[in-house]
Amino acid sequence: MNEMTTELWADVSGLSTADTPAALAHARNSEITTLVLRQAQLADWEPLERIRIAVVGNASELALLDDQRVGVLIAESPAELDGVRAAALGRPLGVRCEIADAAGMNLAAEMSGKVDVVIAAFVDETNIPLELLLASAQGTTTKVFKELLSSAEAVSVAGVLESGPAGLVVRADHLSDLDRVAQALRAGREDRKELVPLEVYRAEPVGMGYRGCIDTTTLFGDDEGMIVGSTSAGGILVCAEVHYLPYMNLRPFRVNAGAVHSYVFGTERTAYITDLAAGERSHAVSANGRFREVSVGRVKVELRPLRLIAARHGDVEVNVFLQDDWHVRVMSAEGKPLNLTEVRPGTKLLGHIVEPGRHVGIKVAEQISEF
């Protein structure tokens, strides 16, 4: 999994005045982080806080640029870099390098350490030169971006080397592919971890307690939920509310995640249910061990009867307190949803085991006992 977040840029600088408004409308509703324009196109753009503006051009075009909306200046070629640098006035500086041969490759590599961003525009769909360019930028503050020739490149490019490029640039003639590229980047931010069978040795009502439902801004799949547990040693895969309920509509964005003291496990961080709030990040987990990042919309806490489910994998014991109702489901070791009230000692459930010991959700190296 890439630890860094790969940025997505849309470059509409090659469009005519007539075609620009439609492209800008499309960009506003996409997942881009930065929009690349010519100075003449700025008048058509209504500021949007989440999208940064970069202006590309030559030295004479950018010499008199005085627009507070512009966050990045990009020289359209290395030959224009010095003139554009003078116009940057402290703003981040980039350069677009068209690479068709070894000479172009070497020139792009020389930009490392001299600019904040290098946009590598290769004429061929090959990743080997990109690897060389990324290697040359290591140890510098320069970020390497790859200009895509097609959306099909996104899957392979995002995984080049361990970190991949800092960003991908979709050109104006491929704006229709923005959603596909964004989807490929989201997939690159997913992780896979081992889920294991847990044998239940205790399943019983424990009285009233406060439980939290985690409502997210995503829609869960049929095999998804969240890993929830009472100890830092791991937890049980609690299903999302995507399965048949006879008395109410489904809530495919929700996991009835259990008692408020519980941990919700992610790829690197683990949060208490009560620490999650609107805008926080958590992870949807599938039965095959895929962890994908999701945004929390809200956490809804209510007093409800609770049921304790305790299980073990080898000598590791985990437990979870869930609302004591049959419509709450947990995932069986076979990847099938089970009604909570059907779980008995001997039932095999699917869960995740980690080395115990956490402080404010972060793994720490210390001896810890939890009962």
Score class of each variant (00 low, 15 high):
L107M: 10
K143I: 12
G57K: 08
L35M: 06
L48I: 11
G90Y: 11
V181R: 04
A166Q: 07
E199H: 04
D191R: 04
R307I: 08
R85S: 13
D44A: 14
M111L: 04
D275A: 14
V196P: 03
R28C: 02
G94I: 08
R28T: 12
E280C: 13
G221D: 15
A63Q: 14
I309Y: 05
R52P: 01
N29S: 13
T341Q: 14
V299P: 08
G221P: 02
V264L: 13
A271E: 12
N319L: 06
A154M: 03
N2E: 07
A102N: 05
G314Q: 11
R329Y: 10
I362C: 01
R304P: 06
A79T: 10
L8F: 08
V160G: 07
V328M: 07
R290P: 03
L306P: 07
V360K: 11
I236V: 15
D66H: 08
V301Q: 12
E76S: 13
R171W: 02
M226P: 09
L276K: 13
A121Y: 00
W45H: 09
D124Q: 15
L148M: 06
L93R: 12
S156H: 11
R358T: 13
S176E: 15
L48H: 07
M331L: 08
V169N: 03
H359D: 02
G346C: 04
N319P: 00
G164C: 01
T347G: 05
M248D: 06
L24G: 06
I119N: 01
G212Q: 09
A87S: 15
A63Y: 05
G159Q: 11
R186N: 13
H243E: 11
G235S: 10
L37D: 04
H352A: 12
P197T: 10
G229W: 05
A63G: 04
H313P: 00
H174L: 12
I214F: 06
K363G: 04
P165F: 07
D325G: 08
N288K: 07
L185V: 08
A233V: 00
K193E: 10
T126N: 14
A365Y: 09
T231P: 01
V285T: 11
N319A: 06
E370V: 01
L65T: 08
T34N: 01
G104M: 03
M331G: 01
S13P: 04
S369R: 08
S282A: 15
I309L: 14
L15K: 03
M331T: 01
V255Q: 11
A278S: 14
A102D: 11
Q183L: 10
F122H: 04
R292C: 06
W9E: 00
V364S: 03
D82T: 13
A172P: 00
A158N: 06
Y201L: 01
A18Y: 03
V330P: 09
L198R: 05
A59Y: 05
R358S: 00
L198E: 04
A103V: 06
Y210D: 12
A88W: 09
C97N: 02
E334A: 15
S151T: 02
H359F: 13
A310K: 09
